[in-house]
Design a protein around this nucleic acid. Structure first.
Lengths: 152, 152
DNA sequence: CTATATTCTAATATCAATATACGATATAGA
DNA sequence: TCTATATCGTATATTGATATTAGAATATAG
């Protein structure tokens, strides 16, 4: 049980880099993937999810890459997360009961709705710019290390 | 992205029934699984996770089954959830960075820690008894319907 | 003591997440 | 304008987790 999938974690971290470069400046997926030690093609694939919602744009060919399509102020973390993972987390019942709703609530409905709403509000009200500003040295230096599942 | 796995959802719902029966009263897995329309052997397997932490006990043979081993007041939702799913959700960094901690925090560390802590506190402070008391008619009547993934 | 209801364990199937491989395309430079 | 190459984009493969099934082990009632 983990909140964000690995792909989303890669995506967020890559977007921090793009944000620091500035809107419109293209960086290749392989450059972005390098500090993550993730397969660049995989990162590229994840980033593709952000094209349709207009968060990033891409340019092929020499000196091409991925660039931020809007000002980092105008991109919320909610936009990013749901573009990659969808919004089922914010939609479905805690117990997975399909009839659960305001009219016929499951025992968790109200309380979980509040907790989840807090997370939703937070993600919606935090911009990529803020995230990038908060970024500690661990992201810029080589300290970044993602947890990988141990081989069994 | 879903908070609880199907197995945990089954487990919680089954425990509500056990709690209503009372501590020490055994109910067979197939009886418990019936209203969930889940495979009874699967539910049984999930419930096995709760034996070692002393939440339930089992009795084989005729008239056997699963029974609540402690008073429902003494079982927190946190106990149940982590027994089935483990506690990685409450342990791991939002961004999945292994070096993240109080000393060298990732940008999400503090805020996510708070949000997640709220959920943890809630689960720890809510007992199975409270859950069972809150249970609406949807769980007792045949209205209970779990969401199943659509076949593609 | 025996039949049977039941748990328990282990093998299998399904599905989603992750990774790879290859084809399409745009750009730079000749 | 052409060609080589860097790059994205998509389709396929692999893996791991989750869910399901099947059958062995075991305790109880009678």
């Amino acid at each position: 049980m983990q909140f964000l999938s690995l792909g989303t974690q890669y995506t967020l971290t890559a977007l921090i880099t793009l944000s620091k470069e500035g809107t419109g400046v293209a960086v290749s997926a392989s450059k972005l993937a390098e500090p993550l030690n993730s397969p660049s093609t995989y990162l590229s694939q994840m980033l593709t999810n952000l094209i349709e919602p207009g968060i990033i744009g891409t340019r092929r060919g020499i000196n091409g890459g991925v660039y931020l399509a809007r000002d980092a102020k105008e991109v919320s973390l909610y936009d990013i997360v749901t573009a990659v993972e969808g919004d089922t987390f914010f939609q479905t019942c805690f117990l997975g009961i399909s009839g659960c709703g305001d009219i016929e609530p499951c025992p968790f409905h109200d309380e979980w709705g509040k907790k989840r709403g807090k997370i939703e509000d937070w993600l919606k009200s935090t911009s990529l710019e803020e995230l990038a500003n908060d970024t500690s040295t661990m992201l810029t230096d080589g300290l970044l290390q993602f947890e990988r599942k141990a081989k069994r």
